[in-house]
Every structure is written in structure tokens, then in C-alpha cells.
Simulated assay, not measured.
Amino acid sequence: MTGAAVGAQREASVWARVRSFAKRALLVELRIYASIGRLVARRPALPAGATGFSYHKPVLTILVIFIVLSAVEIPIIDLIVHQWPFVRIPLLVLGIWGLTWMVGLLAAYLVRPHTVGPDGMRVREGLELDVPLAWEDIASVAIDRRVDEPKSPRITETDASRTLSLRMQDETNIEIELERPTAVRLPGLPPKGGVHEVTHVRLWTDDPKGLMAAVREQI
């Protein structure tokens, strides 16, 4: 391959990543407002006949603190830069956008729970991640609390398994064993994002016993 061809390939790769990032950012932005709308309307994103199980309690206090600090920060900064409109207006817009983003993130945790229903389970996390698992793909579901090292990767691999772990404060308490390696799509680009085949899925729920009861009703 010539130098020009290599350069063109790299440029194409860069633009592909830019387009992917822009698309992802737009979808996240839209989901922020959709989540706020669902929260106001009290309409969580639940498939027909499914039961939702929350996972936000470990981070609820942190999110609320950030929201309160963001709300308090807006009038304080506005008061400081009030006499300079060219500074005041951009900072005001940025502050309101940041506050809206934090509220939308909290709303996403509240209205996009894990679900258990007739068609299977949906494993979720915040604004982006939503992994559907059909019952025919699930071998077993069990309570199994585990605390991992901070900043552990979502996908961990051993000789016998490949596990997707959706931790809250480094913890999971439910393990789903799959019948066979199953493709799941994660947000972002490879290697962290994209499609991965996994044999186990680990997650956190605030009500593991309730989730297990709902699973037993379905299988």
C-alpha cells in the first residue's frame, strides 16, 4: 500500500470516528430531553407486560448533589459577570445546559430501569446502554454480589467465559448466564464499544430479590 493510500485510509478513519462521535452526542442529547419528558409524564420506558427494576440508589446522592451545586452556581456566576453581557450570556447558556444535562441523566436512571417481561430481560444503564436478552438466550439468573476493582473494564475474559459487567460503584449483584455466546452492542467505537459476544452479563439492581421473583414468574 502506498503512502498516499495509507494517508487516505487514516483520514477516512478519523472522519468515521468524528461522524460516530457526533451521532452519539446527538442521540445522547435527544435522550436527555426524552428522559425528562418521560419523568414528568411518569411514563417509564417499559416493554408491554414488563416490570422495571431500578439501579440508581448507589449514585442517587452524588447526582442530586451535582444537580444542586449546578443550580446554585448559575445565579452566583451570573451575579459576578452581570456587567459583562458578552461573558454573561454564554456562561448563562452553558450553565443552564449543564444543569439540564444532569437532570436528564438522573431522569434516565429513573425512567430506563432494567426490565423483566414476557419477551425476556433488558439490561440498561443511564442514557445509552440497552441490552435485550431473550429468554431462549438465558440459561440462568442468580443473585451473586461482587465488588470489582475500581475502573475495571466492562468486558472481562477468562478461558471459560466472557462477561459484560454493568457496575454501580464497582458492584454487581445479579449474574445472568447465557446459553451460548451472544452478541451485545455497547455505546461507542471498538475496542470498548461496538458489538461484543459475551457468555455472562452481570448487573446491579436495587431489588435483587424482586428481580429474581419476576424472573421465576417468566421461566
Rank of each mutant, 00 (worst) to 15 (best):
M1P: 07
G3A: 03
A4P: 00
V6G: 00
E11Q: 07
S13E: 05
A16N: 07
V18R: 01
F21G: 05
A22W: 03
R24G: 06
A25N: 10
L26E: 10
L26W: 12
L27P: 00
R38L: 09
L39R: 06
V40C: 05
P44Q: 13
P47W: 14
Y55R: 15
H56Q: 11
P58E: 12
P58F: 11
V59D: 15
L60K: 15
L60I: 08
L60P: 15
S70L: 09
A71T: 10
V72S: 14
E73L: 14
P75S: 14
P75T: 14
I77R: 05
D78Y: 09
V81W: 08
V81D: 10
Q83K: 15
V87A: 05
P90T: 12
L91P: 00
L91D: 04
V93M: 02
G95W: 09
G95K: 02
G98W: 07
L99E: 12
T100K: 14
A108T: 04
L110E: 02
V111I: 05
H114D: 07
H114K: 09
V116Q: 09
V116L: 14
V116M: 06
M121N: 10
M121Q: 10
R122M: 09
R122D: 06
G126W: 08
E128C: 07
D130W: 14
D130N: 08
W135F: 15
E136L: 04
I138Y: 09
A139I: 12
S140N: 13
V141P: 14
D144N: 10
R146E: 14
K151L: 06
I155T: 01
A160C: 03
S165F: 02
Q169L: 12
D170A: 06
D170E: 10
T172C: 09
I174V: 13
E175F: 03
L178N: 04
E179A: 11
P181A: 01
T182Y: 03
L186R: 11
L186E: 08
P187Y: 05
G188A: 10
G188M: 05
L189D: 05
K192Y: 05
V198C: 00
R202T: 07
L203W: 04
T205D: 06
K209A: 12
A213V: 14
E217H: 00
Q218H: 09
